[in-house]
Every structure is written in structure tokens, then in C-alpha cells.
Amino acid sequence: MNERYSRQVLFPGIGKEGQEKIRGKHVLIIGAGALGSGSAEVLTRAGVGRITIVDRDYVEESNLQRQQLYTEEDVLGKLPKAAAAEKRLRAINSDVEIRAIIGDATPELLEELAAGIDLMMDATDNFETRMVMNDVSQKYKIPWIYGACVGSYGMSFSIIPGKTPCLNCLLRTIPLQGMTCDTGGIISPAVQMVIAHQTAEALKMLVEDWESVRTTFVSFDLWRNQYTSLKMSKAKFAGCLSCGEERTYPYLDHENRTKTTVLCGRDTVQIRPSNQGEVSLEKLAGQLGSLGYQVKGNPYLLSVEMGPERMVIFQDGRALIHGTKDLTHAKSIYQRILG
């Protein structure tokens, strides 16, 4: 055994056999923001055989406060996160086969990648992508580990097809306007805490110690000194369309997806979310205003200045992003605010 992993091999939960199993596995990480860069670093250092990481954004100055793979140089170079992550991960561990995919984690991409993946790590910033991961997980029988954080608050839950409830059992629908780091802020200890839970579960799954995998849903608030773990035995929903008997994998279906369209000749992208429903424009205006965004509105729409772009949000959740023709970028802006 390599000296490199000696301290991990010494840990009885892993051992030599476990280390060889870790070496043989392929992990797919969706997102290379705070959670993604942290998980990727832990798993790369741990010696996972292959890691594929998918992200659509590039490194921005406001990322540096919590996204651990990136430096000031990456901001200056406006590097895509997946590319900047790959560079650093290779310097950390040249044993690991890293593949970086710069792009949106669409159902098509995830279904294409699914073959041969042993585990998916959730490091995305929106529920739509999580629901897609959840359906891919059920369809291709790949475990995945939900993780999310805002402010000093965070949560994690391990989802194993055929064994645990799935995310669609818990939520039943995509929450509209979930709290995001762009609306609630974030401190990096909360990120680290989610990563600690997600990667501990990942190591258990990679060494196939299924007995030790946590069955509870963990949530915590580090500023308020709270920590709870909920039993989930009653959470499985028989009628669940993602994991129940009559499953249809609804989030792999084109109909249930956020639609993005470039509006011809207008340098504007239209976003139509999958979960149409009432957005409280008044509350959102108050929230964004108190965060320092410039907001104007009337009972029918809200207009928010966001750097070079301007977003106009309608009551039904539809939005126009003025100032860009880039569909992926526009969707990213939308999901930063509306989750």
C-alpha cells in the first residue's frame, strides 16, 4: 500500500481492502461551487479512481470566500470552475483520473454519464437539478448524497435506490424560491460541515460499508448551535413518481423542465420554470431590496439590476434576463435568486 494513504488505511473502517475499493470507483460530482470544490478535494485526496465534475459557471470574486479550490488568479483568468477545479485537483493527486465537464447538468448529460458511475455527489445550487439527479439515481440505481446550505444552516441526506426514501418522496414538488447563497448569504464553516457529512457517507458507500451509512436526515445551524437528525422510516411515499411502483421519472421529461429561449434580436433570454406557481413579488422585492439589489416593480412584475444583466420576474415565476444571449448563463442567474 502506498504511503500516501497510510493514515486512511490505518482507520479500521477503511483498511487496505477499503482503500482498494475506493481506488476502483467512479464518482460524479454535480456542481463545482462551494460544496463541489470541497467534496472534490476530499475525494481526490482520498484516492478515488475516477472523478467527473460538471459545472456551468466561471470563477468570480465573490466565490473566493468559500470555494476552496480557487485562487485570485482563477478569477483574473475568468476560468470556468470545472477547468480551474481540474487543474488544482491534478496538482493535489495525479493518481486520480479527473474529468471536467463545462456545461449545464441537463437530464441528457446525466443520463449519458450514468453508465459506470458508482456514486453521485450533490453540489448544485438549485432543486431542479437535484430532482434530475434523483430521477437518474432511481433509473440507473446509483446512490446520491443530497447536501445544501445557506447562512450558517445546512443539511444532508443519503439516498440509496431501493433502500431509502428519495428526494421526491420528501419534497413531492420542487420548492419555488428556496433560500440560496445569493439571497441568504453563506459562511464557509456551514459549507465545511455539509462537506464533512456528505464525504463521510461517500467513503462508507465507496468501501461498501452499507451498514454504517447514515439513515437519518441531518440538519444543523452552526451559528445557533443546533444539530438534529431525523428518522426517515416513514418518509417513503408509495405513490412517488420517482421511486414508487408507478414511476415515470418525471424530471427526465422535457415537459417538466425549465425552458430557456433566446428572444430574437433582443439580447434577452426567457426563463420558464418547470414549477409554475405564484411567486410573491412583494416579499421577493422586500427580500432583494434588503440585500442591496436595485429593485423596481408593480403588482405584475419585478425588475432587478444584477450587474451587467437585468432580470424581470413575473408572478408565475417566468422571467426575462436582459443583457445576455447565453442560455446557460441566464439560467444560472435565475436559479441563484429563485433557487
Partner: peptide, 25 residues
């Protein structure tokens, strides 16, 4: 400390907790 659906009935003495899922990451 156990996940409950919307139609679960609350009993005297039960401790109820509301835990909003968040999407940041």
C-alpha cells in the same frame, strides 16, 4: 424527531419541528 407527512395527526406532548429545505451549494 421523525419525518412526518402533512396528514399526520399531532398528539398531546409531541414535539413538532419545521425544517425548510434549502438549495444553496
Amino acid at each position: 424527531e421523525e419525518f412526518s407527512s402533512n396528514d399526520e395527526v399531532i398528539h398531546e406532548g409531541d414535539e413538532v419541528a419545521f425544517i425548510p429545505p434549502v438549495s444553496g451549494g
